[in-house]
Every structure is written in C-alpha cells, then in structure tokens.
Amino acid sequence: MRETPMDRREFIRRCTRAGLSVTAASTLAFLFYDRKAPAMDMGGSPAIRLPDYCLATMKNRLCIARATDRAAAVRQAFAALGGMQAFVKPGERVLLKVNAAFASPPALGATSHPDLVAAVVRLCKEAGAARVTVTDNPINDPATCFALSGIDAAARKAGAEVIVPRDSFFTRFSVKGGRLIQDWPVLLAPLLDADRVIGLAPVKDHHRSGASMTLKNWYGLLGGRRNIFHQDVHSLIGELAVMIRPTVVVLDGIESMLTNGPTGGSLSDLKPTGTLIVSTDPVAADAVGTTLLGRQATDLPFLVKAQKAGAGTIDYRSLDLKEIKVI
C-alpha cells in the first residue's frame, strides 16, 4: 500500500484541490452570513409572569342580556351576576382592555362603544375601584384612534385614565407552552399595574379569523409587526386565551358587524342583534357571540383551540347562565 511516490505535480494538484475546497466552503459561509442577525439576547424577561386575574369564587358565570341600551344592559347584566362589587373590591386597580383598533366613529361598530366603556368605568368606580385605566394598542396612530372612536372622551369623563401605548410599556414576553408568542413585545406595563382586568369587545365579522370578539380582542396587547401572525391567527388567539385570564369580559352584540369586518365602514354592515354578554368565561361569551353572527362556535377554530387549551367552554349553556331582558 505504500509505494506511490509523490512528485511535484501530484503535490500541486492536491494543494490546488484543498485550496479550492477551502475557498468553496468559505464562499458558502460568506453567502449565508447574516450581517443583520439579531442579538442573541432578545431582551426578554423570563421571570415575568402575568397574574391570573380570575376570581375563584366567580367562575363559570354568564349573563345574556337582551337589550338596546348598552349602559342599562351592562348594569343589569352585572347586577344579575352579583353586581360589579363581586368582581372589583374597594381599592383595587382595574384595567379595561377595549377595542380601539381603528380611527373610526362609534356608529360604525368597529371599536368598543364609548357608552359601554363609560358605563363599565362607572360601575367599577361605584364598586370602589381605586383607579380605572383604559388601554389598547392600535398600530396606526393610537391617539387618533382613541379620540375618533369616542373612547378617550367617554372614559375620561367617567373617571378613567386612558393609557396610550408607548415603547416603554412593552416587554418581551413568552407564553408558557406557546409556539407563536415567544419573546414577543406585549403591552405588559398596564397589565402588571392592575389587580383586575376586564375585556370589552364588540361582535364583528373578521376576514381572517372569521369573527372578532373577546378573545381576538387580546390581539391588541401585542406590539411589533404582529400581522405576521395572521397566517396562523387561530393558533395565535388560542395562545392569547391562555396568556390572559381576565376577571370578566363584556361582549357587545347590541349591534353586530355581520359583513366586511373587522373594519366595516358602512352602517349597512351592522345589524341590530340586541344582545350584551357578560361572562367570566371568554370562550363561552364568544360562543354566544358567534350565534349573533349566524354561525356556530365550532365553525371558529380559535374557539375550539381555546377550549382545548383550557381557557373555557364552548358549551355556554353548561355554565351558571342568567338570561335577562332589559327594558
């Protein structure tokens, strides 16, 4: 096996081959090299955990109020569930997560109605809340969204503080066991500064997710370029349902946006559906809301995923259900 002598030609050939191999490998590495790679430290804080805002004594409560007046409906619906004082104790800080996603007038139903926001703020204050804050993270011009939707003026007049998001309010956050919300900027500052969280959302058709109600409303807590989640919006909402365990949610179906959601634009996109839902189970609340859109809860994959994740039940009739008619 040891007989071939290495002459100069063979030596040069082997050196050339070796050199070419090294050059090819280096070139490949250079082409793959990402000069704009993100820092290894994503800036997240794994120690941060969101509190569970639920009340153990108030689980599985649901009230469906048939009404035309939002303020009267929400007052009587809470009364049917034991009053706001059952949810908010004197001295507690309450955060209302509204839908202020668009700079759209209240009549178009694309955002939480200011009458409803004001009514819930008043109920919280009457229950003895030390402070009531109202927030959302509309991506496009938040201040204008809060102003033109009427939420800003209504909330302030009723005694609440409106928090318009700033960069410093967001913190990288990961949902335990989540696949999508990992090291993602979340509007945590107002959440961590609250003892109770109440979600307020209108019932809307949604081009991508099928419907936008209380669970989809948490989408507004995400920062960054969150539209990338639209491709897997049902899983994303399922993770949001795990991320936020609210004290109670209020789903406004007094009028529902049946077509061209989530923005709508025409009054003809709305239909009077005369229903307001208050529940400690957001999945159940959305299941009721789905019927207002003429669909079934099982038609919406995000509801199925949220139920599977343990965030609530689609079978809303299995809860402690109150149905009232508000005159």
Binding site: K36, M42, R172, D183, W184, G224, R225, F229
Partner: peptide, 18 residues
C-alpha cells in the same frame, strides 16, 4: 424559528408614511 427573531429586526418594521 421564533417569529420574533425575524419580525422584530429593525429593518423588518416598515412604518406607514404620514
């Protein structure tokens, strides 16, 4: 890959122009 790695790069966040 975590979506945040790419989506949160500074050059991946174009903003609307007013």
């Amino acid at each position: 890959i975590n979506p945040a790695v790419l989506a949160l790069r500074p050059d991946a966040q174009p903003a609307a122009v007013a």
